[in-house]
Amino acid sequence: MGAYRADDDYDYLFKVVLIGDSGVGKSNLLSRFSRNEFSLESKSTIGVEFATRSIHVEDKVVKAQIWDTAGQERYRAITSAYYRGAVGALLVYDVTRHVTFENVERWLKELRDHTDSNIVIMLVGNKADLRHLRAVSTEDAKAFAEKESTFFMETSALESMNVENAFTEVLTQIYRVVSKKALEAGDDPAALPKGQTINVGSKDDVSAVKKVGCCSS
């Protein structure tokens, strides 16, 4: 059969979740990053959707499995499955709607309740292209991010501004956490046993999988 898909050759698989209020642009951030697409007619997300993309971090191929979900609060009841095994999160708000920034605190709490403390979080202020409608200042968001020790970036999925940077930064940071963990455990990060699962957290699921080329040709 050969390699059934070229992008199946990766060294690490990281699960990243997209969260934030309804209508802040989570799905468009995802489609911009995974397929370089943006839709003005985008629809609300029902349940969960996923997409993947592989990028290079240092000399390694990192495959991001990104989960997108509905923003409405009641869908959060399915969250345990959603957050399970996540090692990174993009917490998105809309810079033109202040209330979506106010709710960031709640999302953060939710994230911390359901995931491991080592999770890499980036606060993302989307729709930065709508300059005349801005309702959240960069300074306020930056100060908040500092206080909460999260990364921060403003993006525009429409203009393709900083989208690549935001995802790449999160994936790079996860990579650092993972390789540091491996070092602390006394392992050479490049020489883990085949297919060993690196648990960034204590969760029992496959979160960051280090894949050693047993079947890659």
């Binding site: 629809k43 029902i46 349940g47 969960v48 959707e49 399915i78 499955a81 959603y82 399970r84 699921d205 496959v206």
Partner: peptide
């Protein structure tokens, strides 16, 4: 594969294949 909860089918059932 971790899909035993069939979460990937939520949308099909919720909006009856409209998407």
């Amino acid at each position: 594969l971790g899909g035993g909860d069939y979460l990937f089918a939520v949308r099909m059932l919720m909006v009856l294949f409209r998407r």
